[in-house]
Design a binder for these strands. Structure first.
Lengths: 190, 190
DNA sequence: GGTAAGTCTTGCCATATGACAGGAAATACC
DNA sequence: GGTATTTCCTGTCATATGGCAAGACTTACC
């Protein structure tokens, strides 16, 4: 059990070391394999995953049935479908592994218990949600203030592991373009 | 004091009528005027607003200094900058009134108090945040799966009040296009 | 090792949107 | 009421990206 790993994710001034121990105990080790589904559209998310290594990807389908990658989840990220987990609804996203990997999952019930029992965890939870909201808003803004090329360069700089491991077609839809265009952008960058 | 108004916003199975009364008492009436700043970039958000009537708009600046509208806030919406309010940081968005209006605000301290004292309010809060996150994600997806024209038509259908009250340039940046293009789209739709 | 399946690149042409600038129309202001 | 300001529309041309299809290349599999 790698305490540093959890410490890094559950970082909040109100979470004490003994809180952290309680929190850690609520997690369960999970190995995942490339191409494995972690969550399917229509199912209810029952847990969230702290990724220790490997990469996940969440995606939806557009009106033509094409996969649109909405997010990549890398080591030290938390992966889940918020609306499904926290509002107990059917998921509207798929989550699938694009590499083999290792994660720690926590169930909704245990999350719920911690959330109500532990003040620090509660604050952390709210802060994390609002942080995710901020990231999501930023992304929406960059989707139309930056060119596809700039967004790709930014991805290379911030998440080289994604660029190295994910197939071009998934990166392309994440960037909001076709694989054809991304291929041209790559050529241009060289 | 319009109870129905609050009831509609603070709708959650775990919020009892007496909870609701406590919650309502924490709010304070605020009138706002067209072009008034509710929040400025760099300031810390200290409250959130339940809008009873009128429209607010939040916006950022792109790398060229142009205003980009990130959101409109209509009657029965809650308006704030989440990251600033909940993570006690400087805001990275401006919020400005585009019409005169009336809102009810609640301060961070009172929100915080309710959040820790009241189970139903806490659940509502988390549910609301994850709902916002869902909306934000949906918007990011639609920004590249739908054409600007479709997004505009959708806006007309879902939020006619915005189309009627906001100047074209603000609607355009919200849709991710220029006012020139929006003008052409409007012409085409007729 | 050979076939099949999937992945990436490239060429051609179409289209949506942007940049800029001029003008019309509406609105604000003294 | 008249000037200034803002808002909106429109024309021309440039550019980014898409759609489609062919081919090269890689990977998986029996």
């Amino acid at each position: 059990m790698n305490t540093k790993f959890f410490q890094n994710i559950y970082k909040h001034p109100l979470i004490t070391p003994s809180d952290l121990n309680v929190i850690i105990k609520c997690h369960q080790k999970v190995h995942f394999k490339k191409a494995e589904f972690i969550l399917k559209i229509g199912d209810q998310a029952n847990d969230y995953y702290l990724i220790e290594n490997g990469i996940l990807r969440s995606f939806v389908y557009d009106y033509n049935g094409n996969e649109i990658t909405t997010n990549f989840h890398c080591p030290n990220d938390i992966s889940t479908e918020y609306a499904s987990l926290f509002q107990r609804q059917a998921s509207n996203e798929n989550i699938m592994a694009i590499t083999d990997g290792l994660a720690w999952k926590i169930t909704y019930d245990l999350f719920q218990k911690l959330f109500h029992q532990n003040n620090g965890f509660r604050e952390w939870g709210r802060s994390w949600l609002s942080q995710q909201l901020f990231i999501s808003t930023q992304r929406a803004i960059e989707m139309h203030t930056k060119s596809a090329k700039d967004r790709y360069i930014q991805l290379i700089q911030n998440n080289p592991q994604i660029v190295q491991n994910a197939p071009i077609k998934h990166i392309a839809t994440y960037l909001g373009i076709t694989d054809t265009s991304l291929s041209r952008i790559r050529k241009e960058i060289l």
